[in-house]
């Protein structure tokens, strides 16, 4: 990202002159208080928002100038774990996970098999045919992660992926994200959980009022948040 600013008409800018470089295969924490602009920064990465000024390059492509018709193809390489889940309440867990594959045109039988495999990786294989409202918050969170990972994306963006989980599940999910990262996927996690940052010792970027104020590793970053 080069000199990226995002502002909505009539409001103060959400992001101001952000310069950021995430390498391929890297694991990065994005932290900061609520309203600092973490979610907006992630949205710029999967083109749910366009920057007011500046450039956003993903795999060498300037997505700030990407045509509408090019957006779907970019998104197919990016898995997103949404803070508000975005699960369809009238479709089963497996169908929700398979949604990503349907869009890619994967044959029906393969959709089911791959969805089950992804659900297994988050420990929810047995809930494949349950409707999301019947699941706990933590389980729904894991379904969202399975959906984001089901087509092996090159980039995984996660907005507070452990926000609704108890400490044991938090560790499980974070380990899962680390595994994904170890297999070569670039992972960006937005979180305000200092314990995670301390525990996982990854590069951490801190946002405050729309500005990137600090960049540190693990302990230091956690200390900065204190």
């Amino acid at each position: 990202m080069f000199h990226v600013t995002k502002a909505y008409p009539g409001d103060p800018p959400v992001l101001v002159d952000i310069n950021l470089d995430v390498q391929k295969g890297e694991f990065v924490f994005l932290t900061g208080p609520s309203g600092a602009g973490k979610s907006t920064l992630l949205k710029l990465m999967f083109v749910a928002e366009r920057p007011t000024r500046g450039q956003v390059l993903i795999s060498g492509r300037n997505v700030a100038r990407l045509r509408e018709s090019g957006i779907p193809y970019l998104r197919r390489n990016i898995g997103v774990v949404f803070q508000d889940f975005k699960l369809l309440p009238t479709r089963t867990v497996a169908e929700n996970v398979g949604f990503t594959l349907d869009v890619l045109g994967t044959p029906r039988e393969l959709v089911r098999a791959k969805s089950l495999k992804a659900l297994k990786s988050v420990g929810l294989e047995h809930k494949a045919d349950v409707l999301p409202p019947k699941l706990s918050g933590g389980e729904q969170q894991r379904v969202v992660i399975a959906r984001a990972l089901v087509n092996d994306p090159a980039i995984l963006l996660a907005d507070e992926p452990t926000g609704n989980l108890d400490p044991r599940l938090t560790v499980e999910i974070m380990d899962l994200l680390c595994d994904v990262n170890a297999r070569g996927t670039t992972v960006v996690v937005a979180t305000h959980d200092a314990s995670l940052i301390e525990r996982y010792q990854k590069r951490t970027l801190r946002l405050e009022r729309g500005t990137l104020v600090a960049e540190a590793l693990g302990h230091k970053a956690a200390a900065l948040m204190a």
Binding site: A48, S69, P72, R75, K86, L88, V103
Partner: peptide, 16 residues
């Protein structure tokens, strides 16, 4: 609309 939103977010084209 939720289906449409999610389809678009996971990479569905408008035609799809």
């Amino acid at each position: 609309r939720e289906d449409i939103e999610i389809q678009k977010l996971v990479g569905a084209t408008d035609r799809f």
